[in-house]
């Protein structure tokens, strides 16, 4: 989608202009799905600025929050519209680990980039990941942790996904404080995500939309 003033305003983190523009468009009878598309284009600008080093996590979160607030009035109108999610990710913090802020940040930023998030919360059982992948036909799995003791849980979760015959259907992303490439290799994940935006980029790549 070509850049529009609304997309640009979100890209510039101009909250007041974004809210005003969405209101005007809705009042003028524009289709909520089109407005949502412009907001998602704004998030693409934000993502690009993050990747170029102009924006940081603080800006990603602020943009995602503006997106959420601006998108709220569209919800009613979008009910009738066809789903336009790029794909679905099952997300959770590994069993025995209750840290959620990294996982929550990823959820927020994935959603604002058009990816449906099935958030399983923290301290998630291996089978819960498997069930959620199946029930939601998810293409992506994100497992996070802040404790090294969760590495084995992550590994066993990947094993469970493998045992259930779903491994080839999903791309598995891992991230969190102590996670690095060595950990990703150890647990058998596909991608190590250093940042939330790494996760979005990897997700879009896996979904063939990058």
């Amino acid at each position: 989608m070509a850049t529009t003033p609304l997309a640009q305003a979100l890209g510039n983190l101009d909250e007041a202009s974004v809210m005003e523009s969405v209101r005007t468009k809705l009042d003028g009878g524009e289709a909520p799905l089109d407005i949502l598309g412009e907001l998602q284009a704004g998030m693409d600008i934000v993502g690009a600025r993050f990747e170029s080093g102009e924006y940081f996590l603080s800006e990603l979160l602020y943009a995602a929050d503006i997106f959420k607030l601006a998108g709220a009035p569209l919800a009613e109108g979008l009910k009738a519209a066809p789903r336009n999610n790029l794909g679905t990710i099952v997300l959770g913090t590994a069993r025995h680990d209750i840290h959620d802020f990294g996982k929550d940040i990823v959820a927020t930023i994935m959603r604002s980039n058009g990816i449906e998030v099935i958030d399983l919360g923290v301290d998630v059982e291996q089978q819960a990941f498997v069930d959620a992948i199946e029930q939601n036909s998810a293409q992506l799995v994100g497992i996070s942790c802040l404790l090294t003791t969760a590495f084995d849980e992550m590994k066993q979760t990947v094993e469970s996904i493998k045992d259930s015959g779903l491994r080839n259907r999903v791309t598995i992303l891992v991230g969190g404080g102590p996670v690095d490439q060595a950990c990703a290799d150890y647990v058998g994940a596909d991608v190590y995500c250093r940042t939330a935006q790494d996760g979005v980029s990897a997700a879009k790549k896996a979904l063939g939309v990058s």
């Binding site: 909250e15 603080s58 979160l61 940040i105 927020t108």
Partner: peptide, 12 residues
């Protein structure tokens, strides 16, 4: 505040 809300506070 929790990190996410705190970062939003810095903007708002």
């Amino acid at each position: 505040r929790s990190l996410k809300l705190f970062l939003l506070d810095l903007f708002r």
